[in-house]
Design a protein around this nucleic acid. Structure first.
Length: 298
DNA sequence: GCGACAG
DNA sequence: ATCTTGTCGC
């Protein structure tokens, strides 16, 4: 029988988790590693991904993990993967990755097997990167495990290392006048852990952006702004919408049809595949290592 | 007892 | 995260 996500884990487990975070943290790259990240218009960037996990209302063990891939700069959905999963670990602030990240890694691996050509060049993660109790949030964790550039994006300020959502912080938010405006989040250690970003002109509540892996904070903030049609970056927003929709469809009972059904006009069918790479003789692993479809560069 | 608490 | 409708505004 599958264990259920129960109360807070014993101290012994938390120590294990902390040791794992410390170990993986050594592999985080907090600078730009890709050419497109340095380009003012991000030219060369064609695919951005987003991940999210949504939960079933009265079942702390069931959730839907989703990965979506959008083209850039159009931000149209090219790929969607929603999958019901059984959660093992409870949510503990500072250890979000131990609850969710394995399912996100699975989704990335499925994409690699099914449609390697659609592998995103960067992933937006719903949660923090280095803006974290021990400098290793879920965006770093997923980045290190997949080796993909990742951006941490939280909707609320995690009050760590002296950061506080107090009156002074709120004053700084008031000074953000236009989409793209931001200010640094400086920890007591003197390190900038992330930036509060006004993600677009008509959004008052900021996003908290931090480095996940293989991207600089500056590029992460600029790209986040560039991917916002609304407050939340489109990749994460689509992953959220589609995972919730998936749960709603799954939980729908025959005898009690939901009067709200036909509501989500946002979740439409993915567009057709990009580069007309229809078939490739199997066994010719040009673009990638794992077996399955190949992804030729020319 | 009080505040904090990514998702 | 989830519980929840209408409502004000462009």
């Amino acid at each position: 029988m599958a264990r259920e996500a129960a109360g807070k884990p014993p101290e012994e487990i938390l120590l294990d988790w902390k040791r794992e975070q410390a170990s993986l943290k050594a592999r985080v790259v907090d600078q730009d590693t890709e050419a497109w990240q340095l380009d003012p218009a991000f030219s060369g960037l064609q695919r951005v991904g987003g991940v999210d996990v949504s939960f079933v209302k009265d079942d702390s063990g069931s959730a839907c993990a989703s990965l979506v891939v959008l083209n850039y700069p159009e931000l149209e959905v090219l790929y969607e993967d929603c999958r019901m999963v059984t959660l093992t670990a409870p949510y503990v602030s500072g250890f979000l990755a131990f609850r969710e990240v394995s399912f996100l890694v699975d989704a990335v691996q499925r994409l690699q097997e099914r449609e390697p050509c659609l592998m995103p060049q960067v992933l937006f993660v719903d949660g923090n990167g280095v803006l974290h109790h021990r400098g290793f949030g879920v965006a770093c964790h997923l980045g290190v495990l997949t080796d993909l550039p990742c951006i941490g994006m939280a909707k609320k300020l995690l009050q760590v290392d002296g950061l506080k959502n107090n009156a002074l912080h709120k004053e700084k938010i008031q000074l953000l006048k236009a989409g793209g405006d931001s200010f640094p989040l400086m920890g007591s250690s003197g390190t900038v852990l992330g930036r509060a970003l006004r993600s677009h002109d008509h959004s008052t509540k900021p996003l908290y952006v931090s480095v996940g892996h293989k991207i600089s904070l500056e590029a992460a903030v600029r790209l986040t702004h560039s991917c916002c049609k609304f407050r939340v970056p489109e990749p994460v927003r689509q992953a959220d919408i589609r995972s919730r929709d998936y749960i709603r469809r799954t939980q729908e009972v025959q005898g009690a049809p939901d009067p709200q059904s036909g509501r989500s006009k946002e979740a439409q069918r993915p567009k057709a595949c990009p580069q007309g790479v229809s078939e490739e003789p199997a066994g010719t692993s040009k673009g990638t290592s794992a077996g399955g479809k190949a992804c030729p560069r020319f």
